[in-house]
Amino acid sequence: MERTFQKVEEILKKHEYKKENLIRILLDVQKQYRYLPEDVINYIGVALQLPPAKIYGVGTFYAQFSLKPKGKYTILLCDGTACHMEGSISLLKAIEEELNIKPGEVTKDLVFSVDQVGCLGACALAPAMVINEEVYGNLTPEKVKEIIKKLKEGEKDAQ
């Protein structure tokens, strides 16, 4: 991904390079990158003359910020007892094959990220996953691939 800090500079400028606007700056960075990248935090530290540890402290305090990249589509794959027994591992394999990422990772184009989570409370639909708050249940590896492919196509069309 191209990162010239152009966006960060725009954000900093919008908020007048003021320390008191740190939270707003980070909110905008979060919106832009969907997380707070380490080099961006360092860059903001340089620009605002704030210790990076301080910015990190703010970034980890508020729920709106994420320190790890998240995709535009965050796939939460349930690995609770019920889903596990119903074969959530095979779903994970399908996702890995389709997107080439492991749990906790995000695709290079930042469109998809995958996380394994404990029970989603959808045991009756096991195995289940949630993509951006939408629950998909009674899944098979094929179904999973199909869902992801559809989202991918939607992305292409959007571009």
């Binding site: 935090i41 360092n42 530290g45 210790p51 990076p52 540890a53 402290g57």
Partner: peptide
């Protein structure tokens, strides 16, 4: 006047740490 370490996270998970849990030898 340095601020190498600061609080991060909150609640029970609060920790004192350098930025991104970097090793001290790589900080200011």
């Amino acid at each position: 006047g340095i601020g190498v370490i600061d609080f991060a996270y909150r609640g029970f998970s609060t920790q004192v740490t350098p930025v991104f849990e970097t090793e001290l030898s790589k900080t200011e």
